[in-house]
């Protein structure tokens, strides 16, 4: 009798956070998860990263905030969110029972604001990790400036490290000449993991109206068009740091996710693709399992960084 092969194991670990599979959803593209409840069983995902949360409520940038570009989109949302207090008192109660890792994306304009938000989230026991967003291109101060200079990145990470006890993921911007030195600086400063990439700074012009498409003139580019840039950066960083890397940027199929895993990512996040197909994250999970079966891979960790 032929032996029936076991289901492949998709479980991965990112520092002290265990994920049932490597697929998470990216901050700012999946709301608080609730918005996708009709389409996705969150229990099938490795985790979700909720909206960027700041010290106080933010209205974000003026409309228009979005423009479609070839195989991608520009956004200039500008961290619109309810603020950390409302997150803790209202949103948290609604999402803390989700059967997946709920990671909070922490944003800010000053070092103090990052620490304030991180310290509040530290008190929420159902949040296993924060993702420190030192890479948002859509806010005037802070945001990306912290993520473009190794000393500043290290300083904010060290400060947040001292107030946050669980898994600290630091999200890196691709808008730098040398992403490796930033990754190494935040590793040194106490980050448990890095995620990359955030959006690429871009711009589009409406030639009929002779003006920029976005109210902020420039914005963040995401979607399939950024994927090769993201894979390259993940590959570079994965070779240069010891902490686990989370890869994202343009993932919309299981094959895309596999590129990131092979480049050295322990887990991946799906962003813009959720807008096109709200079920895509679960389809990618299924696709990974299918790939492992076809290639007789017992444990998905076996292909991480094989390239």
């Amino acid at each position: 009798m032929e032996h029936i092969s076991n289901e492949p194991s998709l479980q991965v670990r990112v520092a002290s956070m265990t994920l049932r599979n490597p697929v998470m959803t990216a901050s700012g593209t999946f709301g608080y998860g609730e918005e996708y409840a009709d389409f996705v069983d969150l229990g099938h995902l490795g985790g979700i990263v909720v909206k960027g949360t700041t010290g106080s409520r933010r209205e974000g940038n003026a409309y228009p905030r979005m423009a479609e570009t070839p195989s991608g989109m520009l956004n200039a949302v500008g961290l619109q969110n309810v603020g950390v207090e409302a997150f803790c008192s209202e949103v948290y109660d609604r999402i803390k029972h989700f059967d997946t890792n709920v990671v909070v994306n922490v944003s800010g304009s000053t070092l103090e604001e990052y620490c304030q938000v991180a310290a509040r989230i530290d008190a929420l026991s159902a949040i296993p990790a924060i993702e420190l967003n030192i890479s948002c291109p859509n806010v005037k101060q802070g945001g990306m400036t912290f993520g473009t200079r190794p000393e500043m990145a290290a300083e904010v990470v060290a400060a947040v490290r001292s107030v946050f006890s669980r898994t600290l993921i630091v999200k890196l911007t691709p808008n730098v000449t040398n992403v490796v030195e930033i990754a190494q600086a935040v590793e040194e400063a106490g980050a448990d993991s890095v995620s990359l990439i955030n959006t690429l700074l871009g711009m589009a012009i409406d030639v009929e109206r002779r003006r920029p498409m976005l109210s902020t003139i420039t914005g963040g580019l995401s979607g399939p068009c950024v994927k090769p840039v993201a894979v390259r950066m993940v590959w570079q960083v994965a070779h240069a740091v010891k902490i686990p890397v989370i890869g994202l940027g343009g993932i919309s199929t299981a094959a895309d996710a596999l590129e990131f895993l092979m480049a050295g990512a322990r887990a991946v996040q799906v962003g813009t693709a959720n807008f096109v197909d709200p079920t895509v994250s679960v389809r990618i999970v299924d696709g990974l399992a299918d790939y492992c079966r076809r290639h007789h891979i017992a444990d998905i960790n076996d292909i991480v960084g094989i390239v």
């Binding site: 593209t29 918005e35 996708y36 905030r65 956004n75």
Partner: peptide
Amino acid sequence: ENMMACGLGACLCCVAA
């Protein structure tokens, strides 16, 4: 009729003041 990306309230691209 604002321009939309997700249509589901997730991306916050379509806001009206």
